[in-house]
Design a protein around this nucleic acid. Structure first.
Length: 820
RNA sequence: GCCGAAGUGGCGGAACUGGCAGACGCGCACGACUCAAACUCGUGUGCCCUCGGGCAUGUGGGUUCGAUUCCCACCUUCGGCACCA
């Protein structure tokens, strides 16, 4: 009998740092161009350096790392980089609250998080780390801005923008959330401000962004992006006021044009002042003021009663020259379409409600075939359905199918409008009135206008000596020297732009900076680009569906058109993980006190156990609540792995061939399943498969399989399957069983298909679809033999009684169903 | 209101292409080891039962020899959008 005390104890706290240092010293995770191998660029969304790596980071990154490791063992040359999204508001808030410079706060946090990230044992190539707040990084962020500016993809305009009074900065439309339109970061309701702001022309790419045909992205993300962009086809139609001013409207129902009985402008519409008559001026002003106050919170709540005011002016319906009143009402949004609508109360519910409230005429112009003739006086609601056109002058009688096209053709022929496409997507507002971001590299010159900073002068570095005064203005505006410069063109007195860029700008191209973070001739080394791009698998949270993931696609396409990048899409495959909730099933937060700290977990259990549990305990894309006792299962599993491999069996009797054949079958069946699961992101069944196999191995070990050739193969395959999930223990056991360093550069084992074949089947015997018996039979059984065996079953006979079966269904090798 | 996702034991979850529902793990119960406890190991664990079986995958229908899986309607939860013209 072996002496049990001679078996070393599994001490993850000892072996994990040991291997991490070894791997780093040997550079086994360094990714270098190697044209002999197929490349694989695996990317996990870069973290914000908040100062503490939380369990959500681990949950997102561990399976991504495991899959990258798996791909490497499959023979790919894998790039799996990491960096930090280091600009942004929290650093500045810390500066104000705790009197620490944002740079210092950020880089201190990065140091801490780098240590925490390393404790995961991920295969990050740290030589490629990129930090968006480094001048060497944001030099290129600024360079991209200038390229966009020079090619009319960036522009400045005064616009009503969403402004967070708490964060003291503007927000992109998608950073404003909920019915009360609050700031995504601090939940303060936003206000509207008219400001000169910088925008990127994302709308130019709206149509192309709707095309997902070249990429393997989750349906959910495609849906979210499609809804966000919200493309609608219709017509833009020009209405003239009696005074001759043009009011352009967009409509998706040009077939209802003859039913337009009034017009509505948004209260902020620029023409309102111009068209309003003297009589109505006071009422209009009052309404505008009221709308401006309301706007902040309630205006977009759909169930409000309609309100509005007549401007006193009239427009002419271009198709029938009818004189129709122009109203203003807050149910028309300045931010959508043209901020003006033609109102067709008979066929639009909102217009209907408005017309009823203010006694405006309702004219039916569409007659759906299945309805009786509609009398406008009797209507209780608008009729939005399609139908033949009626009361529509020359187009009366046009059937539903032709109504759209013929009415568009009609307005086009009469010069009143044209076919048009409208999007909900808006241009991306990138200006931020904050310090801790990449300065927008523009100089405002009284003579030359907006002048881009010459490339040689990049980066426009952030000054370190800044003060935070409670004025609500960016410290850059208050800096005595930074702001005032000479114009690069005329050398006259000029001023720098003091807005910085939205941090989503930095994260739109970080996957390119990873390729060559120290390269100083260009944002990236073209050689590296040509080898590694595009990203093969991108992983991260679904919350970025309508922000980062739209921006980065836009960015790539814009750069493609500027001959900077190649191909239509930056990331071929996208997968999203879910969220780890607290044990109370609530979202983890400090205030709830339900936060699980990964640092504590690795101190207690070791990284491998935490990795294994995170991959096992939930479906990755869904997430689940944390369970403190659940992790004990992973602890036991790895301990069992340890002893299964290292502890001799002490069984004397010779093992049977059947046991070995059975073991080998289980090993190769598991290998096939695990391989498939890695490809399809089913991480939880990878671990459960390995647990099941370990149990089988221990059964075989108990009857003498230990030490045989089959056992050796089982161990070799088992450890290699384990390596991506739990890299440290796999390496340790690989070394302790005398196998060559390093397990992480071993080939993924090949499935022996012959070995996976079963010799026996369990035939399921049903009577009328209900399970009545199970019979073990050789896999070679014929249909007749199987049916005969089923009929011979005692239990089946009990159910059969005197009856003769109507039909006997046979599913080869699986089941017999006897139908009475 | 519209769009999308998800509903399976006490819990997290598994189930290939329509074919044994509940793999794996947690928890729980009992047993072994121990002076004792923890650890570890073993056994059991959907519900009901007259021990033959019956009922069970959100609810109600349907298709089928057979449905967690396909179809229809509905309910609940979560996410997104929302007076979108």
């Amino acid at each position: 009998m072996p002496d049990p005390t001679s078996i070393p104890v599994y001490k993850p706290q000892e072996i994990e740092p040991k291997w991490q240092l070894q791997w780093e010293a040997d550079g086994i995770d360094q990714a270098n161009i190697d044209r002999k191998k197929p490349k694989f660029y695996a990317l996990t969304m870069l973290p914000y350096p908040s100062g503490d790596l939380h369990i959500g980071h681990w949950y997102a990154m561990t399976p991504s790392d495991a899959r990258a490791r798996y791909k490497r063992m499959r023979g790919f040359n894998v790039l799996f980089p990491i960096g930090f999204d280091a600009f942004g508001l929290p650093a500045e808030n810390a500066a104000i609250q705790r009197n620490i410079h944002p740079k210092q706060w950020t880089y201190r946090n990065i140091d801490k998080m780098r240590r925490q990230l390393k404790s995961m044992g991920a295969m990050f190539d740290w030589r490629r780390e990129a930090i968006s707040a480094d001048p060497e990084y944001y030099k290129w962020t600024q360079w991209f801005f200038i390229k966009f500016y020079e090619n009319d993809l960036a522009y400045q305009k005064e616009a009503p923008v969403d402004f967070c009074p708490n964060c003291n900065t503007t927000l992109a439309r998608e950073q404003v959330q909920g019915e009360d339109r609050h700031c995504e970061r601090c939940e303060t309701p936003v206000i509207k401000k008219n400001l000169e702001q910088w925008f990127f022309r994302t709308t130019r790419y709206a149509d192309e962004l709707l095309d997902f045909s070249g990429i393997d992205w989750p349906d959910q993300v495609q849906t979210l992006q499609t809804n966000w962009i919200n493309r609608s086809e219709g017509a833009s139609v020009n209405f003239k006021t009696e005074a001759g001013d043009d009011i352009e409207v967009f409509t998706t129902r040009p077939d209802t044009l003859w039913g337009a009985t009034f017009m509505v402008l948004a209260p902020e519409h620029p023409l309102v002042d111009q068209v309003t008559t003297q009589d109505q001026e006071q009422a209009v002003r009052a309404y505008q003021e009221q709308a401006q106050h309301m706007e902040d919170i309630h205006r977009e709540a759909a169930d409000r009663e309609k309100t509005g005011v007549f401007t006193g002016a009239y427009a002419l319906n271009p198709v029938n020259n009818q004189k129709i009143p122009i109203w203003i009402a807050d149910y028309v949004m300045m931010s959508y379409g043209t901020g003006a609508i033609m109102a067709v109360p008979a066929h639009d519910q909102r217009d209907f409600e408005f017309a009823r409230k203010f006694n405006l005429p309702i004219v039916v112009v569409i007659q759906p075939p299945e309805m009786e003739e509609i009398i406008s006086e009797d209507m209780e609601a608008a009729i939005p359905a399609a139908g033949a056109m009626v009361n529509s002058g020359p187009l009366s009688g046009t059937p539903a199918e032709e109504a759209f096209n013929r009415s568009v053709a009609y307005v086009e022929e009469h010069g009143a409008g044209k076919f048009a496409v409208n999007y909900r997507l808006r241009d991306w507002l990138i200006s931020r009135q904050r310090y801790w971001g990449a300065p927008i590299p523009i100089i405002h010159c009284p003579n030359c206008g907006r002048v881009p900073v010459p490339e040689n002068d990049l980066p426009v570095e952030l000054p370190d000596d800044v003060e935070w005064l409670p004025t609500g203005e960016s410290p850059l505006k208050l800096h005595p020297t930074w702001r005032f410069v000479c114009c690069p063109k005329c050398n006259g007195k000029a001023e720098r732009e003091t807005d910085t860029m939205d941090t989503f700008m930095c994260s739109s191209w970080y996957h390119l900076r990873y390729l060559s973070p120290t390269y100083d001739q260009y944002p990236f080394d073209p050689k590296e680009y040509d080898y590694w791009m595009p990203v093969d698998t991108y992983t991260g949270g679904i919350e970025h569906a309508t922000m980062h993931l739209i921006y980065t696609r836009f960015f790539h396409k814009a750069c493609r058109d500027l001959n900077i990048t190649k191909g239509d899409e930056p990331m071929l495959q996208l997968r999203n993980q879910g969220m780890v909730l607290g044990e109370d099933h609530e979202k983890m937060s400090k205030s709830r006190g339900n936060v699980i700290s990964p640092d504590d977990l690795i101190a207690t259990y070791g990284a491998d156990t935490v990795r294994a549990y995170l991959m096992f305990f939930a479906r990755w894309e869904l997430g689940a609540p944390w369970n403190s006792s659940g992790i004990e299962g992973s602890v036991r599993w790895l301990r069992k792995v340890w002893y299964t491999v290292l502890e001799p069996a002490g069984v004397e009797k010779p093992v049977s061939k059947g046991v070995l054949r059975n073991l080998r079958r289980k090993v190769h069946q598991t290998l096939a399943a695990v391989t498939n699961d890695f490809e399809t992101f089913n991480f939880n069944t990878i671990v459960s498969g390995l647990m099941t196999l370990l149990n089988e191995m221990n059964l075989a070990k108990a009857v003498g399989a230990y030490g045989t050739e089959t056992w050796q193969e089982a161990i070799s395959i088992y450890l290699r399957m384990l390596a991506p999930v739990c890299p440290h223990i796999a390496e340790e056991l690989w070394a302790r069983t005398g196998r060559p360093y390093t397990i992480h550069q071993q080939p993924w084992p090949e499935v022996d298909l012959d070995a996976t074949q079963e010799e026996m089947i369990t035939l399921i015997v049903q009577v009328n679809g209900k399970l009545r018996d199970r019979i073990a039979l050789p896999v070679t059984i014929s249909e007749e033999e199987a049916k005969a065996a089923a009929m011979a079953s005692e239990n089946v006979q009990n159910f059969l009684g005197q009856k003769t079966p109507k039909k006997i269904i046979y599913v080869s090798g699986r089941l017999v169903n006897i139908v009475l």
